[in-house]
């Protein structure tokens, strides 16, 4: 892990650069003047209390929400030009799992971006989707109707859908929400593998206890950015207190 961090510190390439980003719902700011640089190859957690704007930040970076000010660049270019480099895993609860389709088909959706408008997925896309299902241990469930899957299995399907995009940067909105312990470990192992391959992974995360174990980079967010940097340097009571407002005592064991 240390080697990896030295590398990221040394490199000047930022995977994601956010400049003066402000997002508002009905003129009420949810994110206020965010400046954020995410180095290439980190596995980063975004932490903060409910309503801190964690999901909003991801959605604004991906152009799903329109900011009222500020700009975002992915490897130095606007998101629109770099779509193929980015994969997104939305919150599991954001879709209707009663939608009439099967697991394999949901994973295939990950290939739509590279296909572009009108073109249909073929054998190559199907193979990629099956491989992604295999990687997350869901191959036996490929023909299962998606409403028949457990919460953990649904999350794995979403992860497989992101893997199939073969992106450089992965954004995940609470991938550990409502999953069992086995799935959580399976997911974090895949994320660590992605980092090993030099990919950048950004995760909205809720469980502060597991931050030092799972991640090497962290961003504290509560409407404004509080701090960002290596977990071992900045994951401390001071920043936690600043972010959550109450006196936090989750001291980090080294």
């Amino acid at each position: 892990m240390d080697d990896n961090m030295k590398e990221s510190n040394a490199s000047t390439a930022f995977a994601v650069k956010v400049d003066d980003l402000t997002v508002a719902y009905n003129y009420k700011p949810v994110l206020w003047d965010i400046d954020l640089e995410i180095p290439e190859g980190v596995l980063m957690a975004i932490v903060g209390p409910n309503g801190a704007g964690k999901s909003t930040l991801i959605k604004a970076i991906l152009g799903i929400l329109k900011p009222i000010a500020g700009s975002v660049s992915i490897y130095g270019k606007p998101y629109k030009k770099q779509r193929s480099l980015v994969a997104y895993v939305p919150q599991k609860g954001s879709v209707d799992w009663d939608f009439p389709t099967i697991a394999l088909d949901v994973v295939m959706m990950g290939t739509y971006g590279s296909l572009g408008w009108i073109k249909r997925p073929g054998a190559k896309e199907k193979k990629a989707a099956l491989e992604a299902l295999e990687k997350v241990g869901m191959l036996p469930f490929k023909n299962r109707q998606i409403s028949q899957l457990s919460g953990g299995q649904q999350q794995r399907i979403f992860l497989a859908r992101a893997l199939v995009q073969d992106a450089s940067i992965y954004f995940m909105d609470e991938p550990f929400q409502g999953v069992d312990a086995t799935t959580e470990i399976a997911i974090i192992n895949i994320l660590k593998e992605l980092r090993k391959e030099g990919k950048t992974v950004v995760v909205v995360h809720h469980d502060l206890q597991t931050v030092p174990e799972y991640f090497d980079w962290v961003t504290f967010l509560n409407v404004k950015k509080i701090a960002t940097g290596p977990v071992k340097d900045i994951f401390n009571d001071d920043n936690l207190t600043k972010t959550y407002g109450i006196n936090y005592k989750v001291s980090v064991q080294k």
């Binding site: 991906l62 799903i64 739509y112």
Partner: peptide, 22 residues
Amino acid sequence: IAFFKELKVSTFDAGLSASLGF
């Protein structure tokens, strides 16, 4: 026939659809 894929993905998951450029 032309936009079946786009209709499907945007109906199932509008967020993903937006991030993919549809």
